[in-house]
Computed example of a mutant assay.
Amino acid sequence: MDDAWLLELLPDGVVVADATGSVTHVNAAAVTLLGLERAQCVGSHLAAVVALQDLDGNDWYSCVSPYDGIGIRSRMLETSWRAQSGREVLVTARLHRESPGGDVAAVSLGLRDARSRERVDREHSDLVATVAHELRSPLTGVKGFTATLLSKWDKFTDSQRQLMLRTVDADADRLTRLIGELLDVARIDTGRLSVRKEPVDLVDAITQQLEPLSAPGERAITFEPEGKPSVWVDRDKLAQIVANLVENAIKHGDGPVTVSLTATSDGGAELIVDDAGVGIAEQIRPRIFTKFWKHGSSGGSGLGLYIVGGLVAAHEGALHVESSPAGGARMRVWLPAGEPAAVR
């Protein structure tokens, strides 16, 4: 298989020129992006083939001068240019030298349609809009109540002031949690989520986490452990996993919530959270662990299950959604023994 055939397999456009600037290779993707015929490219000078301009009318070759400049230059970062058709093309380049500081022996260019970047930019804009919406809601409550208290303090009774301050406190807690979730998402996305494992008695740890979630008069939460499984996990991350799964079952499910815990034959443990709601349709189950995914009218940030998935993955575990025996949703988490090799 020759080099020309390999270039045709690449999804991006590729243009290669020799030491004199004469184009030696060009693939079909590049021909399409540049709006040229292949016969016009091979053998022509690089400046004529890559006839791209910026919005001010400056041409690519004159601006970057690939064969001039300092001898240590070897790479050009991706920049945006316009073809004669008006299409936006993203260009990156590599300068090949036979020796450090030597003359440029070849120039290879990568060309991409800017529409792919527009899609990423649009996703980022949607992310910013979603975050702004989630932050604005509690901030509006905080601003409204504090402004009212400052301007009309003497007109309220002590009990009315306490009610307003409790509302402000609850909104502040909501903001704190949302910011914490966003930070966790950033750590998961960048691979910087740190896990500090220690041997944890799962029955005790889960019991402690469920106590504050079992408020009087609210939906019943039943914990059904089998035995006393213990694994190596990050205690705080485990608390997040349990809290997010149970709160998700309370918010989006119905009926009592059942939390089950069993030891597995491989030394790990399996945690199951069941509710008795309408469940989650099979066709949307693959999407529930994505960022800002929401379904129905129960609200929420749409980050809880995404974070659970990231935390479980950080422990090298597995997370699945199924139907519960009562017809609702079942979240099944498997956590490995996680014992470090040094202590075995």
Rank of each mutant, 00 (worst) to 15 (best):
A276H: 11
G300K: 10
V185G: 12
A329Y: 03
T20F: 02
W334L: 05
L175E: 12
L34H: 06
T262M: 09
T190P: 01
A186T: 03
D171P: 02
P325D: 00
F289E: 02
A105S: 14
L238Q: 13
D56I: 04
V128C: 09
D12G: 08
R75H: 11
P138D: 12
Q209A: 14
S74K: 10
A114L: 01
I288M: 11
V14P: 09
L311K: 07
R235E: 10
P229N: 06
N58S: 12
L245M: 12
G299D: 09
R73H: 14
K197A: 14
W5C: 02
S265V: 05
L202F: 04
L52A: 02
S22L: 07
E123C: 02
D54E: 09
S159K: 10
R87E: 14
R332W: 01
G255R: 07
V246H: 09
V131E: 11
H252D: 06
K291G: 01
W293F: 15
E339N: 00
E270S: 01
R38P: 14
A83N: 08
N244E: 12
L109F: 14
S99Y: 05
R73A: 13
D103M: 14
L305S: 01
I72R: 15
D184R: 04
A239F: 08
V246K: 08
V120D: 15
L52W: 01
A205D: 08
W60G: 04
G279S: 01
T207P: 06
D121A: 04
A281H: 03
V91R: 06
S74F: 06
